[in-house]
């Protein structure tokens, strides 16, 4: 099981290091979302403080969908899915490997986007920085837990990539709300964060477990 996880994870990281496709697509797209927010809303620093957490997570979620789509489109292109199906390893291990790779890709994008956001909107993010990073990790884990599962579903549909956001965004409503509220707290907003923090943890635990358990039937031929 452990070997399966690390092998899949290294394989995805290595592909990404060589092609940089998932990162460049999701990073540029997320950045574009932030720039468009700036044009369409023309915010002052104060307004940006208030709404910045929401912008950030919209940018992360949209960019994340691109990275997640890439995750299994990659396996489909050279018929690698058959390889994963035939591999004599635990299916849950395959899921966890893909899932961890997606979390890492999304987090790298987020951590680069964060200082750019602070510069563009003139927002101070250093107040509760460790907390902010923790929240990013928890939110990303929740988003890509179901995201990895649904990405494996989406590649088998006639619509391919188009269907993923339609499936994923309604189901991730709780994690998005909780992530926005805790991020706002980390950026100095006056929010009571403990309920949201707990909700993030609960969502992560539930959906990593459910996805881990159901991934086997997705991969079955």
């Amino acid at each position: 099981m452990w070997r399966a996880i690390t092998t899949i994870l290294w394989k995805d990281l290595k592909i990404e290091l060589r092609t940089k496709e998932a990162f460049s697509a999701s990073f540029v797209f997320s950045l574009m979302v932030l720039v468009i927010f700036n044009f369409t809303l023309d915010l002052t620093t104060e307004e940006a403080m208030k709404m910045g957490a929401g912008f950030l997570w919209i940018a992360f979620a949209f960019g994340g969908v691109l990275a997640l789509n890439r995750s299994f489109a990659l396996e489909r292109d050279e018929s690698c899915i058959q390889g994963l199906q035939l591999a004599p390893v635990d299916r849950g291990g395959v899921y966890l490997g893909k899932f961890l790779a997606n979390v890492i890709f999304m987090l790298i994008t987020e951590l680069i986007l964060l200082p750019l956001f602070a510069i563009f909107f003139n927002v101070d993010i250093t107040g509760r920085l460790p907390y902010l990073v923790g929240v990013l990790v928890l939110g990303t884990v929740g988003f890509s837990s179901v995201g990895t599962l649904f990405s494996a579903i989406a590649v088998h549909t006639r619509m391919r990539e188009v269907i993923l956001p339609i499936l994923l965004l309604p189901v991730t409503v709780p994690v998005l709300i909780a992530a926005v509220e805790t991020t706002a707290y980390a950026m100095g907003a006056d929010v009571e964060p403990y309920f949201w923090f707990r909700l993030l943890v609960v969502y992560d635990v539930i959906f990593v477990t459910v996805s881990f358990l159901t991934f086997g039937s997705i991969l079955q031929e």
């Binding site: 599962l149 189901v171 709780p174 996805s211 159901t214 039937s217 997705i218």
Partner: peptide, 13 residues
């Protein structure tokens, strides 16, 4: 199979 997985995930949500 896929819709059954979505049926489960959706309701737990």
């Amino acid at each position: 199979t896929f819709s059954a997985v979505l049926g489960v995930v959706g309701f737990i949500d």
